[in-house]
Computed example of a mutant assay.
Amino acid sequence: MTFCGLLPLLLLFSISSTPKTTANLEGDALFSLRRALKDPGNVLQSWDPTLVNPCTWFHVTCDQHNRVTRLDLGNAKLTGRLVPELGRLDHLQYLELYRNNLVGPIPKQLGELKSLVSLDLYHNNLTGPIPPSLSRLTNLRFLRLNGNKLSGKIPRKLTKLRNLKSL
C-alpha cells in the first residue's frame, strides 16, 4: 500500500480513537475514586477498569460522545476519600456524593471541573477548608457542602460565581 493509500486509514483511525482515549482517561479517574472508597453495598460493582468505556458503569451518565457528565452516588453508604483525579472529568456537570461517610479534604482539583453545574457533598465528614479553586467553576449553580466538618471561612472568591443559586 502506498503512503497516499495509507493516509486516509491513518486519519480514520485517529478520528475514531479519540473518544476511546477520553473514555479511558475518565475511566481511570473514576477508578481512582473507586480504589479510595469502601463500598459495603456493592453499588460500584460494575466499575470494571478493563472496560473501554465507563459509560456502561452504574451511577455514571455520559453524553452522546461518551464523556462523563454525571456521577450519582448520593446516599450510597460509601466511606473513604475524594481523589484529586476527579478534576480530570472535563465534561462533568453533576457530582452527587451526598449522604455518605466521606472523610478528608475537598481536593482543590475539583476547581478544574469547568462544566460543573451542581456539586453536592453535603452530609459527609469532610474536613479542612473550602478550596478557593471552586471559584473557577463559573457554571456552578448549586454548591452544597453543609453537614460536614469543614473549617475556616468561606472563600470570598465564591461571591463572584454569578450563576450560583444555592450555597
Rank of each mutant, 00 (worst) to 15 (best):
Y98T: 10
L95P: 02
L126V: 09
D72V: 09
V52D: 15
G111D: 00
R67C: 09
A76I: 01
R81Y: 09
D90G: 14
H123Y: 15
N75K: 07
N101I: 09
D48H: 02
C55M: 00
L89R: 14
R99T: 14
L78V: 04
N101C: 06
P155T: 01
P131H: 02
D90R: 15
D48R: 03
R99Q: 15
E96A: 01
G152Y: 08
A76C: 08
G87W: 00
S46G: 02
P131F: 06
S46H: 00
R88T: 12
D90Y: 12
L110G: 09
P131W: 01
K153W: 01
P132I: 08
R141T: 04
D63F: 11
N53I: 09
L71Y: 14
Y122D: 11
T69A: 04
S46C: 07
H65I: 05
V52F: 07
R70D: 15
S46K: 03
R144H: 07
L121T: 10
W47N: 00
P105I: 09
H91A: 13
Y94N: 02
F142Q: 03
G147A: 04
L110W: 13
W57E: 07
H123I: 10
I106D: 06
N148C: 10
P54E: 01
P155A: 01
N146I: 02
C55G: 09
V60Y: 05
N124F: 12
N75E: 14
R81H: 12
S115G: 03
A76H: 04
R99E: 15
S118H: 11
L137I: 06
N125Q: 15
E96S: 04
K153G: 04
R70M: 13
T61P: 08
D63C: 09
R88E: 11
G152K: 10
L92D: 05
V60D: 00
V83Y: 08
D120R: 15
N124R: 09
G147L: 05
L89H: 14
V68Q: 14
K108H: 12
Q45C: 03
D72R: 13
P49D: 04
T69N: 09
Q109M: 08
E112G: 08
N66Q: 15
L110K: 11
P131Y: 04
P129S: 05
K153A: 11
I154M: 03
R136I: 00
N139Y: 07
L134N: 00
L78E: 06
V60K: 02
H123P: 00
D90C: 09
P132Y: 12
L150I: 09
R88L: 13
P54S: 02
R70K: 15
L78Q: 03
L97G: 01
L150Q: 09
W47D: 05
A76R: 00
